[in-house]
Design a protein around this nucleic acid. Structure first.
Lengths: 380, 380
DNA sequence: TATTTTTAGTCCATAATCTGAACATAATCC
DNA sequence: GGATTATGTTCAGATTATGGACTAAAAATA
């Protein structure tokens, strides 16, 4: 809780945010409807909407009649024409950028293949800066003002610093000077969870499970990401599945990752595509590997459900294309283990976003901030 | 996020809360210090403090000089003289009540032994209502106005209804009519965690582990309890420790409870006191049982740390008297399993509150609400 | 000891913001 | 065409916070 008092200007700032958030959450509204929803008077809403119109974050979009009598109202909706946010991602084998407007419409998307395994941070960041410049220029030529950016990385982030990205071989890297607008850095699984929230199935409460080289998870509760004390929550990949199982590079033993990480799933295969092909052709070895991973994932998710109490479970990353084969063993474990104590187990569903959940989530994070604090970010 | 607009009266309500919370968090302040802290002007703070004085939630407590020059200020501190909250608890073998004033000083404490295992809810609730009456009367005769109450129960609570309390044999019990002031119902482990937060060691981020007949946990992040989507988070007792371990009454297999629950720890002994005596006399069987429990607890906590990212781990309930013997095996597992990936593992400490953490936490919950929303609860 | 300096807290005119009733507007109903 | 109903704006008034001037009370200084 903020310990700052409320002054007149912050009252207005807050009310601007309330109106904008209402439009964002429930679609276009007339001023009268906004007044009813927010508990403010029509007068106040009119004045707030006027400011939002001027800032370019909303537009009037034609007359609206609820089918009843009376004067029709003018619908006020989010405007995708002026303000936008940039999402960025560094992954093992590519860099990605995207630009998303206020209506959460993806306006631009760019990917550059790269071999980032064990490259020096400086080199990759220079490459990324180049990608940012290019993308920003293109966004501007489309009339969009990029107002903030966020970067997804495959590692743990603490206090704005990349602490450890084992698959990149990075440690304690401070990312700065990438853009000259407000900037955020976050973990890939966290941002992918937010990507799923805003660009995926539309649920508000779920645990997003991100299958990559490592296995991560991001918990969303009431549309909010749970981060834990140091921002390290959701490390599903190192939940203990078999207490005396094989050693893991994290220092532990019998972690989920050893059973359901990409390396364990692929075995001597080289791509998920190949694994899917084998599964489709009925290869028994492939089927067995996936089933084994599914059971391990089910055990880990049982613990996760007891501790995190998610609304549903969304399988993303490489688990998405494997969902057909994973779903059965996973939910079998959940059904058997969660038992009657908590009613029905959480639903298990496949992710609605593709491989770019994390970049999209990064851009969405900035959009969320604009909507939560329009006055601050738009200089109103 | 609330979607209601800010009106003049809610601005003032918010500022009253900000001032009160500042005093509550950082002790007595002069009006000038409050103005600086909150960003409000001295004028506004004076006016807010006047209202709080009248409501009886703060008092002026003498002159204060910071050792410098200038006119000394008047310290404004929380008043424990007029407003209070009641904490209640139904446990397997007792009922408990307490009254706590605004300064979080325990003013009254009452316990009634009872055999609640498999008693009808109506009978126990009648008994509890009796205890409430008695305690309220006593509080009133001490000049305290009880302004709200909360009840701790050994089971899962969803939407204000007791869903399932297996050890009491209760299911879907709606508790009402117990008091005629605002009322809250919550899980025993959750409230014990809050008890530890407000009446224990003083840390702001921790996982409280409550060893009772079952094993529960409550996560506190930045002074806030994490509840999950349905309020069922923190069920540490059913985290999977050995995937093909013994059946558990929850429907699962190899749950922590089977290794570290009270029944598993005591074996054929009848009380924790007895177990401690055996341990102190060097009984090898007792030592082995506790060590085994400690290792299992360490495995479950490893998963919990990866998923919840707690600041530290506090062992409470029956684990507190056993801490001397549990600490070593538990932290051995944590140290070995958490490894270098997350720096040092969270500190393992013993609970600072006794067996009454839950009742105290229940009362504290109401105190917290008064401080967070004084205008609403005090009719200002 | 008298005066200056410093800090605390109050007073009061002013400013920012929201409210609410009246009004203008624009549609449907009869 | 007039009545009805709902939207959105205007304007005076209410609420709350601000900020500079002022009073109060202590230490430092002369």
């Amino acid at each position: 809780m903020s310990s700052r008092g409320v002054r007149h200007d912050s009252m207005r700032a807050r009310n601007l945010a309330v109106v904008l958030a209402t439009i964002h959450r429930s679609g276009p509204h007339t001023r009268a409807a906004l007044a009813e929803r927010t508990g403010l008077t029509k007068t106040t809403v009119s004045s707030l909407v006027a400011d939002l119109l001027e800032a370019g974050v909303v537009t009037e979009s034609g007359a609206v009649r609820g089918g009843e009598r009376g004067r029709p109202g003018v619908a006020v909706s989010l405007s995708g024409h002026r303000v936008a946010a940039m999402g960025l991602e560094i992954n093992i084998d590519y860099l990605a950028a995207c630009v998303v407007d206020l209506t959460r419409t993806v306006r631009l998307r760019r990917t550059r293949p790269a071999d980032n395994r064990n490259s020096a941070p400086a080199r990759i960041l220079a490459e990324l800066r180049d990608l940012v410049k290019e993308t920003t220029a293109e966004a501007e030529s489309a009339g969009l003002r990029v107002i903030g950016a966020a970067l997804a990385v495959p590692g743990t982030v603490e206090g704005g610093v990349l602490r450890s990205a084992p698959h990149l071989g990075w440690r304690d890297v401070r990312v700065s000077g990438l853009v000259d607008v407000p900037f955020a850095l976050d973990n890939e699984a966290n941002l992918a969870a937010l990507g799923e929230l805003w660009f995926g199935s539309g649920a508000n409460d779920f645990l997003y499970v991100s299958g990559e080289i490592g296995v991560g998870a991001g918990l969303v509760v009431e549309g909010d990401l749970f981060r834990g004390t140091f921002g390290l929550a959701g490390e599903l990949g190192h939940v203990v599945v078999v207490p005396d199982g094989p050693d893991c590079r994290c220092g532990g033993r019998g972690c989920l990752e050893a059973y359901a990480g990409q390396d364990a799933l692929l075995g001597e295969l080289t791509s998920v595509r190949e694994l899917v092909a084998r599964l489709e052709s009925g290869d028994p070895g492939a089927a067995q590997a996936v089933e084994r991973a599914g059971h391990a994932l089910g055990v880990a998710l049982t613990s996760a459900v007891h501790l995190l109490d998610p609304g549903r479970i969304v399988l993303g990353g490489i688990f998405a294309p494997l969902f057909r084969w994973l779903a059965e063993p996973v939910s079998e474990e959940l059904r058997a283990r969660l038992g009657p104590m908590r009613g029905t187990p959480p639903a298990l569903v496949v992710s609605g976003t593709g491989a770019d959940a994390a970049v999209l989530g990064a851009a969405g994070l900035i959009i969320q901030r604009i909507i939560a604090e329009p006055a601050q970010l738009l200089g109103m």
